[in-house]
């Protein structure tokens, strides 16, 4: 997703001068990739849309502090990953609160209604485990693994970044990046195989 060095330098210069058209170009150049990354990290479309906008707002605010020690794309990715971390933390807390509320409601629901509700969520037996369902299992599983492991795994396996780029984005040491990717794959494999009831690969 990176621009050629010369173009990038000119764009940064115009951005630092608060050129609105340069910023439009920046959003058009990096918007799609950032949006895809954020969606993968959060697994929630509405949250991802909002956070993608927030990434570019932060980029606009902080562009004056960008010193060119990394590629512009790496810097933008770093902002995105950090905002995702914060938003994930917030969402986990909010979900925990909602879960408590749901449990409180469940305690008040009569037994008969609860039974009917349970029947409704049982999956149709004629639905085979097709490709789409396997993908859904993986999508759910990725959200269940340790968030710090997840970000490294997505950057490596989905965004196809090098270990060096991941080190720059996350600020982690080389050994830590590799360790987190290794542990993330192990966690993911365990969850997916348990859900599928069969081995992968």
């Amino acid at each position: 997703m990176a621009l050629p060095d010369e173009l990038e330098a000119k764009l940064i210069e115009r951005l630092a001068a608060r050129d609105e058209r340069a910023f439009n170009e920046l959003v058009q150049t990096y918007g799609r990739r950032v949006s895809a990354l954020v969606l993968r990290m959060l697994g929630n479309k509405a949250e991802a849309e909002d956070l993608t906008q927030e990434v570019f707002v932060q980029v606009f605010k902080a562009i004056g502090t960008f010193r060119g020690e990394s590629k512009l794309s790496t810097w933008i990715y770093r902002i995105a990953v950090n905002l995702c971390k914060n938003r994930s933390k917030y969402l986990r807390v909010r979900r925990a609160g909602e879960q408590d509320e749901l449990e409180a409601v469940a305690e008040r629901v009569p037994l008969g209604e609860a039974r009917r509700a349970n029947v409704a969520v049982i999956e149709r037996p004629d639905e085979a485990l097709g490709g789409k369902q396997v993908e859904k299992i993986v999508q759910d599983a990725i959200q269940k693994i340790e968030p710090t492991f997840r970000e490294c795994l997505i950057l490596r396996d989905v965004e196809e970044l090098s270990y060096e780029e991941i080190e720059q984005i996350t600020g982690l040491a080389a050994g830590t990046v590799k360790s987190r990717i290794f542990r993330a794959r192990a966690q993911l494999k365990e969850i997916v195989e348990r859900e599928l009831g069969e081995k992968i690969g």
């Binding site: 060119g68 810097w75 950090n82 720059q168 600020g171 360790s179 987190r180």
Partner: peptide, 20 residues
Amino acid sequence: MTEDSDKPKDEAGAADDELS
């Protein structure tokens, strides 16, 4: 890390074990 910095930091990183 704040978004104002080019230099990332991850305090948790130091606690991660290295791979064999």
